[in-house]
């Protein structure tokens, strides 16, 4: 399995192919969203809605063998692509890996220019929520 750094570097390399072209970048994000494994419908509840997002984002965390597994879905394709990036980097990591990682890929792929400040806030909420779940799992393990 790739390290968090390798996973991020791969995302950066993939996005660099679009040379800043917004439209192809967005289509690629939507494609990534399509590939995200389907979320169990029973997990799409109010409790697992990420607060602070303009569109609806559900995030359901589980821990298996000490590693965190996230399921996610959104009602908008682009947002689904965004969350799939986080899942690519953070799925099957230990809570400590998640809590200690620096998501430098976000700035490198020019995320804020791509999605604007409102969606950037929503994206930050997703990151915060994932870290919060990681912290809760860590606390349980101690």
């Amino acid at each position: 399995m790739k390290s968090i750094i390798e996973a991020q570097d791969e995302i950066i390399a993939d996005f660099s192919l679009f040379e800043g072209d917004m439209e192809s970048t967005l289509f690629y994000l939507m494609e990534l969203g399509h590939k995200l494994p389907a979320m169990d419908e029973s997990h799409k509840t109010e409790e697992y809605l990420v607060k602070g997002c303009q569109s609806k984002v559900w995030l359901y965390p589980q821990v298996q063998n000490g590693k965190v597994h996230f399921e996610a879905d959104s009602n908008t394709e682009i947002t689904k692509g965004l969350i799939s990036l986080l899942i690519t980097v953070w799925n099957q990591r230990t809570p400590d890996d998640i809590l200690n990682s620096d998501l430098y890929f976000i700035e490198k792929i020019g995320m804020s220019r791509m999605i604007g400040s409102q969606r950037s806030n929503g994206f930050a909420s997703m990151i915060k929520q994932m870290k919060y779940y990681a912290l809760a799992f860590k606390a349980k393990q101690l």
């Binding site: 917004m22 439209e23 967005l26 289509f27 569109s55 908008t76 394709e77």
Partner: peptide, 21 residues
């Protein structure tokens, strides 16, 4: 089949400013 937010962003990528929401 497309959420208006997605339409809005894809339009913006083409330089078209429309309102969504």
């Amino acid at each position: 089949g497309q959420h208006p937010f997605d339409t809005g962003m894809l339009m913006d990528a083409k330089g078209i400013a429309v309102r969504t929401g």
